[in-house]
């Protein structure tokens, strides 16, 4: 796996991911979520990804955005909702009467945009971390952040083996086809069973790889209990940029939480301060 350049320390990347993860849950307005998404994109760009990584990210983004917007557009069930396009009219035989018609709703599309911005922001940061961090740095960072050793190792090995798993999965599926296997059949049960069976060698391979790697690192003295006495060949001290970025994002998160709490109190009649009207408006319109 190609590792991009990044000036940020691994712990900073994980903390940024956690803060942005919280922000996208708290924020509701498309404009605020768009800012989060653009900030995530900026991080990826700063790590100078390869063309292949950019292409992969664009494919991910296209499918998640399209899938979320389209599915929310169709399955949106809150009110009010405005029909934009009718895919299956109510009077269509059988399906129309059974489903009450299948429509694309304007509010659903809008909700889909919000959801896709939420999802894509975290997806982009996840890609940024995977592409710009060495497995050993990630393991060290998770240990320093007091993540339990077993969990930290699990996360790291999962990322480490993504390319291996992908190539083994392709080999398994193709070799089964070469033995006449059909994955898409009219018999749904047989199709599902075929897919499940194909997962067996992939899963067994993963377990074997992870076991071997686990034994290898343990044989070289890696242990969650001794992670604090660990030294590092490369200095991995957090610098001004790291502290600055974490401070700014933490401040943003605290402000958003405070404003949301104030607005919640106002909206539910718990507390109202006339001197806070500007903040109420800002929260409603912008956040």
């Amino acid at each position: 796996m190609f590792i991009c350049k990044s000036k940020l320390e691994s712990r900073t990347k994980i903390i940024i991911m956690m803060i942005i993860g919280c922000l996208v849950i708290l924020l509701d307005s498309p404009s605020a979520l768009l800012v989060c998404f653009l900030a995530s994109i900026l991080l990826v760009v700063s790590s100078m990804p390869t063309l292949k990584q950019i292409r992969l990210l664009l494919i991910f983004l296209f499918f998640t955005t399209w899938g979320l917007i389209y599915s929310q557009g169709i399955f949106y069930n809150a009110f009010p909702r405005t029909v934009l396009i009718t895919l299956v009219p109510v009077d269509f035989p059988l399906i129309g009467k059974w489903t009450g018609g299948i429509h694309v709703y304007r509010e659903g599309l809008f909700h889909g945009i919000i959801q896709s911005l939420r999802f894509n922001s975290t997806l982009v940061i996840g890609c940024y971390i995977v592409w710009s961090t060495q497995p050993r740095d990630l393991l060290l960072a998770l240990s320093q952040l007091r993540v339990p050793g077993a969990l930290a190792f699990m996360v790291t090995t999962a990322l480490h083996f993504i390319p291996v798993i992908a190539s083994e999965a392709a080999a398994v599926i193709r070799s089964q086809r070469l033995r006449g296997a059909r994955y898409l059949r009219f018999n749904l049960f047989a199709s599902v069973r075929g897919v499940v069976n194909s997962f067996r060698p992939i899963l067994a391979g993963n377990i074997r790889h992870a076991t071997n790697l686990g034994e290898s690192v343990e044989s070289r003295g890696f242990s969650p209990e001794t992670s604090m006495q660990r030294t590092s060949l490369r200095s991995s001290q957090m610098g001004r940029l790291d502290y600055g970025l974490i401070a700014v994002l933490s401040l943003c998160l605290i402000c958003v939480i405070a404003l949301k709490v104030l607005y919640f109190c106002y909206a539910n009649g718990i507390y109202y301060g006339s001197w806070l009207r500007g903040l109420y408006t800002f929260t409603r319109e912008i956040l």
């Binding site: 050993r136 690192v217 001794t226």
Partner: peptide
């Protein structure tokens, strides 16, 4: 370096 780092 990995093993040596683990040994401190």
């Amino acid at each position: 370096a990995f093993g040596l780092e683990n040994l401190g």
